[in-house]
């Protein structure tokens, strides 16, 4: 059991090393450039006015939206491509033969590879989040500077408790918008969704004969996984009007394909609505179970595959 775990870890670390040395992380430079340009662009649109706090509130909200969107987008593509290429690359380079000829079970090989992808995604998302936090901090400092300079124009405002209170209120709006603990919740949920995508791609790649098939199919499932919740709400809410076939179809799809639409609560978080951690944890548990089921099916299929 322990040696089995050790083999999984050895394969996982090797997978991460491979991705890093093949410069997958360079993709994140594009992320950083896009994020910084966006935030500079949005700052230039803003002109100091009567309501600096309101202005920066909107501005920071936009950067948050954009940042989380970009983390999700880049994470999705890194997960999709690196997972879809895992097994085809091993087969093409014949490295899989050298590994499976050693005392390594096929399940350990597959779990090790997936573990490597999770490490890679965790690393990527941590680095992107770091860039995101730095960008937000810069926005906060710029915002507070603009608030200060707006009040400076009112002359000796620091001796007027009423205006000081107004200033502090404005500053607090900006700070609370930036230092939003719910952002952690949003990033964790994005990570869970990206890992689910990787697990779907892994399952497909265990029987696919080309990585392009894996990429396209995973992408289709990803789309269906988002539309499925909407379809269910639409058809099932019609009650008696929905035919038994419609209900069966929706039921079947929701069994086979995860419901990723639930993860749109990230948008709720970004819109400033409070989403309790208990709700996020429920979603994490759902993602967890789904990933475990997908891995189990992948192992069974991979065990029978001729290599």
């Amino acid at each position: 059991m322990i040696s089995s775990l050790q083999r999984i870890i050895v394969i996982g670390r090797n997978t991460l090393t491979e991705a890093v040395r093949q410069k997958v992380l360079n993709v994140l430079l594009i992320f950083a450039v896009v994020l910084v340009s966006c935030s500079v662009f949005i700052s230039q649109l803003a002109t100091p006015g009567l309501d600096p706090a309101g202005l920066f509130d909107e501005q920071i909200k936009f950067v948050k939206d954009f940042g989380c969107g970009a983390i999700g987008f880049f994470g999705f593509f890194i997960a999709l491509l690196s997972t879809a290429l895992l097994i085809p690359q091993e087969l093409h380079n014949r490295t899989i033969y050298t590994i499976l000829a050693k005392p390594v079970r096929r399940s350990e090989f597959l779990l090790g590879k997936f573990f490597g992808i999770i490490l890679l995604l965790a690393l990527c998302i941590s680095l992107m989040s770091l860039a995101f936090v730095v960008t937000l901090y810069v926005q906060e400092q710029v915002g507070l500077g603009v608030v200060d300079s707006t009040y400076e124009r009112m002359g000796d405002w620091k001796n007027n408790p009423h205006i000081v209170a107004m200033h502090d209120h404005d500053a607090a709006i900006i700070i609370s918008q930036v230092r939003d603990p719910q952002l952690v919740e949003a990033v964790v949920l994005l990570f869970a969704k990206i890992v689910m995508t990787a697990a779907i791609a892994l399952l497909i790649s265990t029987f696919a004969t080309s990585w392009i098939f894996t990429v396209i199919t995973t992408f289709m499932i990803y789309l269906i996984a988002h539309a499925e919740g909407l379809a269910r709400t639409f058809w099932l809410s019609q009650g008696a009007e929905s035919t038994i076939w419609q209900s069966a179809l929706v039921g079947l799809i929701s069994m086979l394909i995860p419901d990723m639409n639930s993860f749109t609560i990230v948008d709720e978080i970004l819109a400033g609505n409070h989403i309790p951690w208990s709700h996020a944890l429920n979603l994490l548990a759902y993602a967890n179970i789904y990933v475990i089921v997908l891995l189990a099916v992948s192992i069974v299929i991979f065990d029978y595959r001729e290599i």
Binding site: N14, R94, T98
Partner: peptide, 16 residues
Amino acid sequence: RRRVGFLPENPYFYAF
């Protein structure tokens, strides 16, 4: 497999 070693045809291994 603990007692077996294998060299495949035209091996590549991990180039990195």
